[in-house]
Design a protein around this nucleic acid. Sequence first.
RNA 1: GGCCAGGUGGCAGAGUGGUCAUGCAGUGGACUGCAAAUCCACGUACGCCGGUUCGAUUCCGACCCUGGCCUCCA
Length: 464
Amino acid sequence: MALRLYNSLTRRVEPFTPADPERATMYLCGPTVYSFVHIGNARGPVVFDVLVRLLRRKYRLVYARNITDVDDKINAAAAEAGVPIADIAAKYAAIYREDMARLGVAPPDIEPLATGHITPIIEMCENLIASGHAYAADGHVLFDVARFGDYGKLSGRSVDELIAGARIDVAPYKKNPADFVLWKPSTPELPGWDSPWGRGRPGWHIECSAMAAAHLGETIDIHAGGVDLVFPHHENEIAQSTCAHAGKTFARFWLHNGMLTFDGAKMSKSVGNVKQLHALLQRHPPEALRYALLSAHYRQPLDWSEALIEQSVATLDRLYGALRDLEDVDVLPADERPDIESHEAVKELEAALLNDLNTPEALVALAKLAFQARQGSRDDKRIAKAALLAGGAKLGLLQQAPESWFKRGSERVDAAQVETLIEARRAARAARDFARADAIRDELAAMGVAIEDGPQGTRWKIAN
RNA sequence: GGCCAGGUGGCAGAGUGGUCAUGCAGUGGACUGCAAAUCCACGUACGCCGGUUCGAUUCCGACCCUGGCCUCCA
């Protein structure tokens, strides 16, 4: 079965194969590091992480996710904090990497920084001026949208409409209201680099074009990002890159994830309805946040709520419960194991992912795997456990020890004391002193510990 | 206003022209000293109005509603 992906460019689901059968390339628009990101900003990295895992199974993948470390918002944050711009960028980039890791997002192969690509950015500007697609004016370099016939193709709008419908004050140096900045001047306080047009800094869109070309080549297989980047960011990237590369296709597939909403509106810093990822990670199991982000199809909107997180925790309890019940079941070594990929539910899971990353359906298959893992003979269970783990790995789930899932945050409780109480309760039960046994259970519950009596004795976990 | 997505059972959320999503929650049962976990069972869901069809939640049209982009934005 082949991978099929919805391509925003054609508005259809299309079979995907890389242009070079040996090497696939993918670029994801990464964060501007001026502050903490919110959970909505994590949706793309998480869902496309599932795609990255899939592509790596099939191809040699080169995956780039940039960091925008020069931007007006960073300048503002630095000015407010009274520290150098680079400090702000470095701080929030580091937090971003840590938080992504906690969400189980595999690091990209390349993490280019805008400030590390000033030369190729300037070269691209020069190139575009030389070919007549851009012009310098008043210290700026602007892209001349009238010179690119396909402008608006991705976002489905016409240049004429964009010109007619300009809502903002049009800068006097623009030939055309829809023209956008490739390079702009800097004041002495702001970060800047020497250029043929004076000291300045790059516009927002050009960095992605320059970095994608520098690391992945002039034509890339997949370019991904949030649907809110379609216009103008991705439209402008296409214009720049296509014109700078003599009309070559910039990205063959454009993938866009839907927005996270909160309180009925798109989660957005400007609206103010955001949930910081960093803060959520303090309060909830990171894996539950990942599960929640995968619980809807990536192109659909997803409404964020406490209930969604709790539901995700409950579901993971069940999945990890299956693994915990199989803790003493050995997974056969890879070379002795039957082909896990031919396991029915694993095939279903893979098929769901191949079908335009249908993660909700993949999660159904995962639930099925967990159910099956508890059934059957011991030999069946060895296979089922391996299948469950393999299915989880495709989604970046279920990769921690069940004990660490159930005893997460157990620094707050004294494990030795818990064990002592459980032993006391065992003795009370043996003496049929159930009042005492129940009192001990209540005491444990008050500590935030839930217990389960099973055939092999009593086990405990942190209560939800 | 233009362009683009959606409206599915208490909640989340796939999918399909004609038996079943699934998960969470709930209810009943089994198991348990009691619980928990697990297993079994249950709930006549597809915005509204027409049309096509033997049959539509699924196709077509109108309408209502919601969200996104059109400005920084994942």
